[in-house]
């Protein structure tokens, strides 16, 4: 409820912003809504935007519930995409029913390794994971540029950071229905369900959550806290890595493109996934819903921009306002809760 109220409040602030730019907020928001949910094609576009958010978001649920702050979704997406691309380049003739799952697994492995490294650094040497995951993003971004400028660059292309069109056997199949919607959404839903099983129905997940709430008690109960922290970031990275693979093989150009910088390729899903996960209460299934809403904001934002002729930067700012309000409201709620309980507990003590 609180996050929804935050979204409404953010849209109200956004309306003022639109007004300042001389645009009619009602026209703008109507365009936003129809652009996001107005018809089959719009719904498909929204879904496509939401897939990476869902995948990264599920990973964020796993990490945050273990008490690990993963800001490294961007880098993990990129490393997943790179490893998946390498597999597709190496095995172009493997039949589609095998190659598609294979590149998804490759994405998971690439992202998982990129998550496990800061995980292990935190668990065994106490390196702050917020800093290390951000730095791993930068490394991954430059590593992608490096590969695409040289080894993986499309033969014949000059100075365009992209691979050749990858084998059709790795293309994510388009789902029936006449839209551009592809198999990636099923992948995301399956990962979300597995994430839910992992966190709330498995003994491994119980350990992760236990460590997230209270590492001291977890250790005293016989759990290996360091292992859990490493596992959490590895799983989290794996989810983001799958998002990377989906971004490559579900894209219309079917190639890994580094042009425009890492954020252009990842669509900032590594960061926005944090927001959708928080909005979804760090629950994988609710994160699917919140990612869909956020995807709608992204897809509808384009229509809004066209309808009322505002700069693209304003649409990005509008998204930013929503993020700030949602995250802020969650922090505020946590603080209010602590305060209310703390006060009662103080009284309980004699």
């Amino acid at each position: 409820m609180v996050p929804l109220a935050a979204v409404v409040a953010a849209l109200a602030v956004g309306a003022v912003l639109l007004g300042v730019f001389g645009a009619n907020p009602i026209t703008g928001y109507r365009a936003l809504f129809t652009g996001a949910f107005g018809g089959p094609d719009e719904l498909a576009a929204t879904t496509l935007k939401s897939i990476p958010l869902m995948l990264v978001g599920v990973g964020i649920c796993i990490a945050f519930r273990t008490g690990v702050i993963n800001i490294g979704g961007e880098g993990q997406i990129i490393m997943g995409a790179i490893l998946a691309t390498l597999v597709a380049l190496a095995l172009p003739d493997v039949p589609r029913p095998i190659l598609v799952p294979l590149v998804m697994v490759a994405g998971a492995v690439g992202g998982g390794i990129w998550g496990a490294i800061p995980g292990a650094l935190k668990a065994y040497s106490g390196v702050n994971e917020i800093l290390s995951t951000i730095m791993m993003n930068i490394i991954a971004g430059f590593f992608m540029s490096f590969l695409l400028e040289d080894w993986l660059i499309e033969p014949g292309a000059i100075r365009i950071q992209q691979t050749k069109r990858l084998t059709q056997n790795a293309d994510l199949p388009i789902l029936p229905g006449g839209t551009r919607l592809h198999l990636g959404i099923l992948v995301a839903l399956i990962v979300a369900f597995l994430g839910y099983l992992l966190l709330f129905r498995s003994s491994l997940g119980l350990r992760l959550r236990a460590v997230g709430h209270n590492p001291h008690a977890s250790r005293a109960a016989g759990m290996k806290v360091e292992l859990s922290i490493t596992q959490a970031l590895a799983f989290s990275g794996a989810c983001a890595g799958i998002a990377g693979a989906v971004l490559v093989f579900g894209s219309e150009s079917h190639r890994l493109i580094g042009e425009g910088g890492p954020l252009a390729f990842t669509q900032s899903a590594g960061f926005n996934g944090i927001v959708t996960a928080l909005f979804g209460g760090l629950h994988p299934l609710f994160t699917v819903l919140s990612s869909y809403l956020f995807g709608g904001m992204l897809a509808g934002g384009i229509s809004l921009q066209r309808a009322v002729q505002v700069p693209q930067a304003l649409v990005i700012a509008l998204n930013g306002v929503v993020v700030v309000f949602v995250v802020g409201s969650l922090l505020l709620r946590a603080r209010v809760q602590r305060w209310a309980e703390g006060d009662v507990q103080m009284e309980g003590r004699a």
Binding site: S203, L206, R207, R209, A210, H213, N214, H216, A217, S218, A220, A221, G222
Partner: peptide, 24 residues
């Protein structure tokens, strides 16, 4: 701090040690 996890349910705390053994 060391004995229990406040944010866990009573049931979860009761199986905290045995959570990786059958029949749990």
């Amino acid at each position: 701090k060391y004995g229990s996890i406040g944010e866990f349910t009573v049931a979860e705390n009761l199986v905290l040690v045995d959570h990786d053994r059958p029949p749990i």
